[in-house]
Design a protein around this nucleic acid. Structure first.
Length: 287
DNA sequence: GTCCAGGTTTTTA
DNA sequence: TAAAAACATGGA
């Protein structure tokens, strides 16, 4: 199945810290599992994607188009962001093929709960053990597992999750799963709420603070205005917005028509690529 | 051994 | 109210 996706880079999109399950293959393609569908994806030279089903039903164009957010006009958005701020333009140049995905709500919530005070390789390992241990198998070979549902996790205990080696985060996972499984917290409910209220609802979950809430809103609920501030973005903001800009999120939302979260992804990529340390340096070029 | 990792909660001053 | 410490785990 072919999808038109101008300018999208799979490597930049799937390995930029927004998702933790995709795996690059020796031939340059990527394999992943979303909502119980395992697929292989490769870039097509004519600015598109080719998807092949690996398990379960054939890939559905509407579903994957939504996942890769192909309804967003990125060329126009990138132009607007470059014009908004020269420092941001520099960030975009580091990885212009990044696209922010619309991931499943519960998966985004749990994976970013796991991400706190953690590093990306270890996050991937914990998520992999979580899916292999508790997710529904999608094929006979045991190659593909769905992300476990809230209902599956809700009745478990911390001892049941010891195999994850997730540390204290296990209790947070259980609290989140129970609230979602009970129906106290639902995706449609959160979609309908204004950003600040949805954020507050998410922060009722144990272990969900401002950053994890914003990640859930941005990556799991398609709320492009949410602006997660982690250690890297905080450092980057200090070098990009020294001066009058007191609130980068509000500033970027004003300048980008409510897409600050997408700007955040390019800023994160720049901060990582420059190896930005605690001591901010002055707007260096990437690479 | 120390420090750090896409933070948050709990404790302390 | 704000700052520091604790939290589990593993790699550099």
């Amino acid at each position: 199945m072919y999808l038109k996706a101008k300018g999208l880079s799979l490597a930049q999109t799937l390995d930029c810290g927004q998702c933790f399950r995709w795996q690059s293959q020796p031939d340059g393609s990527w394999t992943g599992i979303v909502e119980g569908q395992a697929v292989r994806v490769q870039e097509v030279p004519g600015d598109g994607l080719e998807l092949t089903g690996l398990a379960g039903p054939d890939p559905d164009p509407a579903f994957w188009s939504g996942y890769f957010a192909l309804d967003l006009d990125y060329p126009a958005l990138l132009d607007r962001m470059r014009a908004a701020h020269p420092g941001l333009a520099n960030c975009i140049d580091c990885a212009p093929g990044i696209r922010v995905l619309r991931q499943p709500f519960f998966e985004a919530l749990i994976t970013f709960l796991i991400s706190q005070n953690n590093n990306i390789p270890r996050i991937r390992g914990i998520v992999d053990r979580l899916c292999r241990g508790l997710g529904q198998p999608l094929d006979d070979g045991g190659n593909f597992y769905a992300f476990p549902s809230a209902r599956r996790l809700a009745p478990l205990t911390e001892a049941d999750l010891a195999f994850l080696r997730a540390g204290w985060r296990s209790s947070y996972i259980l609290d989140a799963a129970r609230r979602v499984a009970s129906g106290a917290l639902t995706q449609p409910q959160l979609q309908a709420l204004p950003l600040a209220e949805a954020r507050a609802r998410l922060m009722e979950i144990k272990g969900v603070g401002p950053k994890v809430a914003d990640c859930t809103l941005l990556y799991g609920l398609g709320r492009w205005e949410a602006y997660p501030i982690d250690v890297w973005v905080r450092r980057a903001d200090q070098t990009l917005f020294t001066g009058r800009v007191k609130d980068p999120a509000a500033y970027l939302n004003r300048k980008t028509g409510g897409h600050a979260g997408i700007a955040q992804q390019y800023i994160f990529a720049w901060a990582r690529s420059t190896g930005l340390t605690k001591k901010p340096h002055k707007n260096p070029a990437c690479d």
